[in-house]
Design a protein around this nucleic acid. Structure first.
Length: 124
DNA sequence: CGTGTGACCGGCG
DNA sequence: ACGCCGGCCACAC
């Protein structure tokens, strides 16, 4: 018998790529102006345990295609604008956020803990 | 088909 | 407090 298959239960977290992208975009669009969320929080809301990277992956694809997604409101757990280099210009992300009233210093959102918008709690 | 990399996160020394 | 490492999953080469 050829039982070489590991048969690990490693079920693909992303069955349909397009659906996953849509889910991410939908949540990001729900982030209120003047608030921010994180990759991990969104991944958690989508039941992607440690799939924060997948969220970033989805957003990078959205950047050019879906300009109606406020990707600037999604940052990392430290409140840093880790995705700024993926925008049209390195300063665009910060400029967009500042336009929404968010204060940024050294690529880090000030008052992050108060501005943090967690879909798991807010969309409960 | 193996290896490396990524808009990350949590744990541990 | 800080740095390092492993895990996570999909994709490019």
């Amino acid at each position: 018998m050829r039982e070489k298959k590991p048969q690990t239960k490693r079920v693909p977290q992303i069955a349909d790529k397009r659906d996953f992208f849509n889910d991410v975009y939908e949540i990001v669009r729900l982030i209120p102006v003047g608030r921010v969320s994180t990759y991990g929080a969104i991944a958690n809301y989508l039941s992607l345990k440690s799939g924060a990277r997948m969220v970033g992956w989805a957003l990078s694809s959205s950047q050019s295609a879906h300009s109606d997604v406020p990707a600037q409101r999604v940052i990392n757990r430290n409140g840093q604008l880790s995705g700024r280099l993926h925008f049209a210009t390195p300063t665009l992300m910060q400029e967009l956020l500042e336009k929404e009233g968010i204060i940024i210093k050294d690529n880090t959102v000030q008052n992050f803990s108060e501005l943090f918008w967690d879909p798991v709690k807010e969309l409960l």
